[in-house]
Structure formats: C-alpha cells, structure tokens
Nucleic acid binder design. Structure first.
Lengths: 285, 285
DNA sequence: TATTCCGATAGTGAC
DNA sequence: GTCACTATCGGAATGAG
C-alpha cells in the first residue's frame, strides 16, 4: 500500500505550468534526467505537449474553426497538476500516479489511475507501455488500486452477498471465514483508442450498472476487446487489438450481456433493463 | 355548386354494414346495377373489401402478430358511412363524394374528397381512375371543392394580402376589383402510394405551414412528384410516377422549399423555420 | 473511443 | 405513403476577457 501524499501547493491549475511536482522522481528519472522547468524538456515532449497560450502573448490565441479539439481532451492533466483541488475524488497520490474516482463512472466502482510522468502521459497506451519499467510500475500500482476498488465494492454491495455472509456474520475475529473475493470482480485495463489525451488506466467493477452508461460505445468499450487488460501489455506487433477496424467493429457491435452472454442486438434499453436484473443477482453471489 | 345532403340515418358506423346510402346512385350504377346488401356484391368487391368480423361469430377474430394492418387503414370509410357523426368536419356530401377537412392538415387549408362508390373506393388511384366516368365526376367535384378551399383560404389569410387589398377596401359592391386568385394556391391531387385504404383526393393549399408537418414524408409527399395532380390521370403506362423506386426516392429526398426552391438537405428543423418566413411572405402576396 | 444537446432516422403499436 | 411514442443513431459544440 502506498502512502498518500497530497500536493495542493505544488502545482497551479494552469496549462502553462507543467513543472513536475517536487519529489515526483521515480518515473521522470528512469530514462533521462529532467530538470524542473516550466517548459517541455526536449523536442519529443514539445511535440506531445498540449497546445498552450504563449505566456507573453497579450491577444488570445484563437483556435481555428475546423479544430474540433477542446479543453476537454486535456482535462485529466488537472488531476495530476492539482490533485488537492478535487477533494475526495482523488483517492491517492504516489510519486508515480494519481488515483481518482471517474467523474462519470460506468460501473459501481470505476477508478482511473493517472501516471504523472510527463514523458509518458501524452503517449498512446501502445507507445507508453513500450517502456518496460514504466509498465511494471503502473501494473504494480494498478494492482494496488484494484485492491482499494475491491474494498470499495465490498463496502457498496457486500451486504447483499451470499458468499460474503459467513464473513459478515463472523464473531471470531481471529479466525474469519474468507468471504467473497471482490478483487475478481475488478477489471484493470485500457481503452484501445482513448479520447482523453492523458494516459489513464481504468479500474472498474464488471457490472456496468450505472446511469452514466448511456450509449453503445459506453457499454462496448468496457465489455469487448476494445478493453485491453493492462496485464496484456506490451501487445504483440500483430495483435488484432491494434487494428482500428477491429476496434471500431467492437464499439458498434451488437450488445452482449457481460454476465450471461445473452445477445441484445441493438436494443440498448432492453440491455439496460437486463443489467438491472443481472446486477441484483451478481450482488448476491 | 352541389347541394349538401346529410345522411345521418343511412349508415351505421360499422364495418360489416357496407350498404350504399340510399340515393347514392350515380357512380354505383355506371357500370352495373348493385342491389343494396350487407355483403360485398361480387367477387371483386369481396377481394377488395376490408377484413371484417364474422357477423355471427361470438369470439373476436384475432389478428396475427405479423399483420401490421390496423383499423386505422380503413378509418376513412367512417366519413362515408356516417358523415353526420363528424359534425363540422364534414363540409359537403353529394351523391358521389364526401368532402371533409383533413384531421391532420398539412397546410393552412387541407381537405379530403372521398368517393362514396364502393366499386372504386378501395382501389388504388391508378386502378380507380382507369374508369373515365368515375374520373370525370371526381375531377368536377374536386374542382368545386377547390373553390370552397380557396374561399376558406381567403377567409384565413386574405387580410394579409397586398393584392387582395383593393377588393377588401372596395366600397363599390357593384364593381369590385378582382383581388388575389386564391384558387391558384390550391393543389388537387393524389399520393402515389396512399397508406389509407380508401381513395382520397387531397385538396390543399401550397404553403405546407402546419404543426402537423412533422417529418420528411409529410413534406415530400406533397411537394414532390409523389403528389400527382388529379388532372394528370389517367397516367400513361410508362409514366415514371408509377415507379415505386422513383417514389421512394421522392419521399426520402432532400428538402426543397416549395416557394423559393432553396435546398435544405436533410435539415427538417431548418426547413420548418424557413417555412414560417415563406408563409408570412406568401400571405402578403 | 470525454459529455451534452439537438435533431434525424427507424421501428412499433394502434382494435 | 395514417399517427404518436419510443428509441437508436448521428453530428456539433464544448472555453472564456
């Protein structure tokens, strides 16, 4: 378990201030030393950095009308730069990551693990995880975060569980029965084609029971091979999950219940009703 | 001008009572004599007649789940069988027709002229109008109905008309200026593929200004060649307007303003806003 | 594949 | 091409002195 460290004073909520927080060392120093600076450290970082206002330019830099990019794509960086401003939404800060509750949870428990390394956090998953040390650290922290998610899941639905009853009713605290393994209900992985700029690892319970699941891509992005387990990285060069057509097919394919496998065609509303029922049964396992 | 004749007592509002109203003579007797009866008069009529309950069967005849037909398709026959039950919605009854206000008017004035002839009223337009005598009578009655529609249109929008001002302001009743010709704003015609079983001639003002115009087919069915002027019947055998593909294309094609010709693509809402403006200008012509 | 709003499109049921 | 209802699908904006 990592000790949480809040860094309210270490970063301003400004895009043009990209200094790594003091002590953010580990990941930043694995490949090359990088002095704290308000500018990107090298050409590559420059290339990957988000657009920012010229610090000395008085007139606002206008976005072209055809540039559909918006603030939203880079929004996750705020959690990294100023985690303390998000209150209880931020669960943990380590030298390497920030762990947050997803603002639009697609399941009963849905966390995001955000790497703090500027060298990596604007890379696509396939690119970022080509760095074995980076990947190893994230897998380790993600595993830890999953334990936290499992504990939260138990808190939320544990009282409904049949297999958890022995433990709940145990009085011999020195010799508790095991109870349900909630960690098995937690998935750790990436979206094949994220929309948000910053690398984020999903730590999510399997149930897909959430009012925020509102359309096909919400559901399919977590229940098809579009969701790539973190343990599967690095992907082989010829892994089918790298294929854009394959993944677009996953996103638009017919609905299939994650639990019973029933096919719902394109009947999203019927799927949603079914997920209610499955949730009740799943809670009671 | 025809004298109106109300026949409240002549027909019950039942599908299994298809007696021709007393005195409905003209059309019914043009081709062959047909005795009043509660059953279809011959094999052809039997074929074309709507499904009806067996009069002596106690148990209701259930429709199959795949039979998408409903009462609605035959609803217009009620105006023929029992016009008096519709109050002021029925404007005129002649031996040959019933003239009604459309319940869902797609323009400022929208009437339906319903032939009363059982021999014809379940035929498709192309089939029914293969009978020249039938066609001639309907064209004559439709022309009369259009005059009534024009008068109603003038009543509704005449005060806004610039070209009508001289007549409105005239005091010399013996020598009135002509004013606007509202008859030119009235269209008389058929839908190429009606959904209602019973033959109905649309008598409609050109404006398409109505809250009941709610989707593409509403608009295109009156503003493309899907709308076939009654004067064009009988259609030549090779008339393109008989082609189903052609007409489906008309129904689904991009919007085009009936007045200025502007193309609105598939932007129905924008078209609707534009029709508001055109209506204001059109009223003032 | 961020959300949200609006709108266009599609399927159904109607006694 | 009946209506009315629901729902699916599709595009566009999204910030901010």
């Amino acid at each position: 378990m990592y000790k949480c460290r809040i860094m309210a004073e270490q970063a301003e909520d400004r895009e043009d201030l990209t200094d790594p927080p003091t002590g953010a060392g580990l990941l930043e120093h694995e490949n090359e030393a990088a002095p704290a600076s308000s500018k990107p450290k090298n050409a590559f970082a420059e290339l990957m950095a988000p657009k920012r206002k010229a610090p000395t330019s008085p007139q606002p830099e206008k976005r072209s009308k055809n540039d559909k990019s918006g603030r939203w794509r880079g929004a996750l960086v705020q959690y990294i730069n100023n985690p303390s401003s998000f209150g209880t939404q931020v669960l943990r800060v380590t030298p390497n990551t920030v762990l947050i509750k997803d603002s639009f949870p697609k399941a009963t428990v849905h966390l995001l693990l955000l790497p703090r390394s500027e060298k990596h956090y604007l890379l696509r998953p396939n690119e970022a995880f080509a760095d074995p040390a980076f990947l190893a650290i994230l897998q380790e922290e993600a595993a830890s975060a999953a334990k936290l998610a499992a504990a939260e899941l138990e808190r939320l639905i544990g009282s409904s569980s049949a297999s958890n009853k022995p433990r709940l009713e145990a009085t011999d605290y020195a010799n508790q029965p095991p109870g349900r393994d909630y960690l098995k209900e937690i998935k750790i992985g990436m979206h094949a084609h994220p929309s948000m700029d910053h690398l984020h690892i999903h730590i999510i319970s399997k149930d897909m029971h959430s009012q925020k699941v509102k359309h096909k891509k919400h559901y399919n992005s977590f229940t098809t091979e579009f969701f790539i387990p973190l343990a599967d990285y690095p992907l082989a060069e010829d892994d089918i999950r790298r294929d854009i057509g394959f993944q677009n097919g996953n996103l638009s394919r017919d609905f299939k219940c994650w639990r019973c496998g029933r096919d719902f065609g394109n009947k999203f509303t019927q799927l949603k009703k079914h997920l209610e029922d499955e949730f009740e049964e799943w809670k009671m396992e």
